[in-house]
């Protein structure tokens, strides 16, 4: 009797495993496909791309990459993207996690109202903000600076980052923080020494999303700057898209070049944090 049951369970887990691998492999192909396509397409001619978008190139066109590297000031655009993305991620995450700390660990009047208002900010469509943003940035006198981009990117993502980080902070048991209070930790120590490290997961999640948002943002990068010396890599990618035609294959080459650093950053960052996480489980 017992044997039969074991057998059944075994069969079930086996079938489950097969099913699981079918699902995982499906997603593997599905998510890998765009990346592979992008790389292959970046080595074709435009005519080939439009003629048979899924075939291999007749000859590898590395000149597309040469074109991409020829974009004037590519190095500076890259550097600006790094400065702006890191700056805006740091600023945004600090501001959002500080706000989340207050909005998750304390109870006071208007707390939910403030939080709801913040969250509704996620909804505001970027396209309708262009005119007021130009006004604000002109008023602040920071048009055509990297700081304008850092400020705007930090501000735009406050709602989403706060929403994510607060969600994680809420799950930290009160006892942990109270223990800290008893140990004589003040407000700031409780934040920096207890809550901030314990909500790493949420913070890293929000930071990753924020960094990638900044890295890929184009509209404001163009709208709020005018000199090539402060612009970001996305402007370099659009170099190939003109009034009458777009040189897609060179653009794809530029995209491939531009995603490499963000990909490396993402992989190392994610790796370090998640491995650090498993050691200190905190969920209550």
């Amino acid at each position: 009797m017992k044997n039969v049951l074991m057998h059944k369970v075994d069969f079930k887990t086996k079938a489950g495993k097969v099913l699981m691998w079918i699902v995982l492999i499906f997603f593997l192909f599905y998510t890998l496909m765009p990346m592979v396509w992008l790389v292959i397409s970046s080595l074709k001619t435009n005519t080939e791309l439009m003629g048979s978008p899924f075939s291999l190139p007749s000859k590898l066109r590395f000149e597309n990459y040469a074109n991409a590297f020829k974009v004037s000031g590519l190095g500076i655009l890259f550097l600006n993207s790094i400065i702006v993305s890191l700056g805006a991620t740091f600023l945004n995450i600090m501001i959002a996690s500080m706000a989340s700390f207050v909005l998750s660990r304390f109870e006071f009047r208007f707390r939910e109202a403030i939080f709801s208002l913040l969250v509704i900010g996620i909804l505001v469509p970027i396209n309708s903000l262009m005119v007021p943003y130009v006004k604000i940035i002109n008023k602040l006198g920071i048009y055509d600076t990297r700081f304008a981009l850092i400020l705007v990117y930090s501000a735009i993502s406050i709602p989403i980052s706060t929403f994510i980080i607060r969600g994680f902070m809420k799950t930290i048991p009160v006892e942990l923080e109270e223990a800290g209070t008893i140990d004589g930790c003040n407000f700031y120590q409780r934040f920096f020494k207890i809550i901030f490290p314990l909500s790493r997961t949420g913070i890293v999640t929000a930071a990753t999303l924020q960094f990638l948002y900044c890295w890929n943002e184009f509209i404001y990068s163009m709208l709020l700057t005018s000199s090539q010396s402060v612009r970001t890599i996305q402007v370099g990618i659009r170099y190939f898209s003109n009034q009458f035609t777009t040189d897609y294959t060179s653009m794809y080459a530029a995209i491939v070049i531009s995603i490499i650093p963000s990909l490396i950053g993402y992989i190392t960052f994610q790796e370090q944090i998640i491995s650090g996480l498993t050691s200190g489980a905190v969920k209550g």
Partner: peptide, 22 residues
């Protein structure tokens, strides 16, 4: 010269600037 290669972005920017009074 301020370079804006992408035509749609160009139009967005001009319109937004004019609407914002600049």
């Amino acid at each position: 010269v301020e370079e804006i290669a992408d035509y749609d972005a160009y139009e967005d920017k001009m319109k937004s600037n004019i609407a914002a009074g600049t």
